[in-house]
Amino acid sequence: MMQTVPIALENCAKTFADGTRALEAVNLEIAAGETVVLLGPSGCGKTTTLRLIAGLEQPDAGGRVRFGADDVTALPIEKRNVGMVFQSYALFPNMTVAENIAYGLRLRRQSAAEQRARVGEMLALMRIERLAERSIDQLSGGQRQRVALARALAVQPRVLLLDEPLTALDAKLRDTLRFEIDSLLRELGITAIYVTHDQAEAMALGDRIVVMDHGRIAQVGAPREIYQQPASRYVAEFIGTMNRLSGHADGEVFRCAGGYVAWPALPAGAQEILFRPEDTRIAADGEAATLHGTVGAAFFCGNHVRLFVEVGEAQPLVLETPARREYRHGEPVALAIETHGLMVL
C-alpha cells in the first residue's frame, strides 16, 4: 500500500543564481491522495514549483516544504522518497526495462526476490510485461512513458510527480495515456502533482487545478470552478476560449458596437462583459435579437461549424453552431447570449 501524504508549500519563492525570479512566495496545500495539476504557459513557474517539491531546487530562505508532518526542505531529492516522471522520461540507456524499474529497489537494498516480484507487479500494472528485457532505445514513446511510470511507482513513493509526461507524444496516444494515467492515479490513491501547459489535460486529470502566471498562483480550484468562475481575465482567457464585448453599462443593458446585451445583474459602470462560445448562439428565426454582426470566417468541423462573427470589436466573437447550414463570409447574423453565462472580471 502506498504511504501517501499531504504536501504543503509555505512561502516558497525561488530566485536562480543568475537573479531570475522564477517563483514569488507561494503557499499551497495538497491533500493526501489528491491529484493537483499545475497549469500555465512556459515560464509561469509551474515546473519550478514541481522541482521544489521534488527537492531538485531549494526554495529561497524562509520557504518550507512539508510532506505530512515532515519538514523535507533541507532534504535532497534522493532522501525524499518521491516518484518522478520526466518530460524526456530520463530512462537509463545502460539498463533494460526491468533493470530501470528495479533500480530504485536495488538502491533500497531489497533482495533479488523482492525486486523481481515488485518489477513483475509493475510491468503487469502498466501492461508491458513483454518489454521487460528490451533496451530503452528499442521502445516507442508511449512504451517509454509506461516504463517511466512503472519505475517511479515501483519504489512506493510518498508522492508522484509528473513533469509534462505526455508532451512528447502524438495527439492520439496522448488521449489514450491520459485516460490510463487517470485510472491509475484513482486506483492507487496516491498524492500526485502533474505539470502541464495543456488545459484539456489539466481539466481531465486534476481534482484541483493550480493556474500559474509569472511565478504567482492565479487561481486554485476544481476544473469546473476554474472554467466557470475564473478569478481573473488571465485565468478566463488561458482556460478555454472567452468572448469579449466592450462598451458601457446603461442600467440593465450593456451597449456595444454590435447592439446591446440585456443583463439584469449587470454591474454598474461595467466597460466589458465576457462569455463563453457555448453561451453564444445564432438567434432563432423570429427571436428578437439585440446583437448583430457579419460572418468573418466559418470553419467546418464535421459535427459543428466554428463561426467567427465580426461585431465591431477588435476580436471577433467565437461560437459553435450545428453544421446544418452553410455560412458565407460577410453574411449578416443575429446573435443571442445566455444571460447565465455572462461575467465581468
Binding site: A54, S88, Y89, A90, F92, G104, R108, A152
Partner: peptide
Amino acid sequence: IDLPTLEEGAASLGAGFWQRFRDIVLPN
C-alpha cells in the same frame, strides 16, 4: 547525452552522488 536529466531520474529513485556516478555516469 542528457546527463542532468538522467542524474535527476536516478536521484529521484534515491541514488546519492557516488551511486549516480557509478550507475549512471560511468556506464553511459
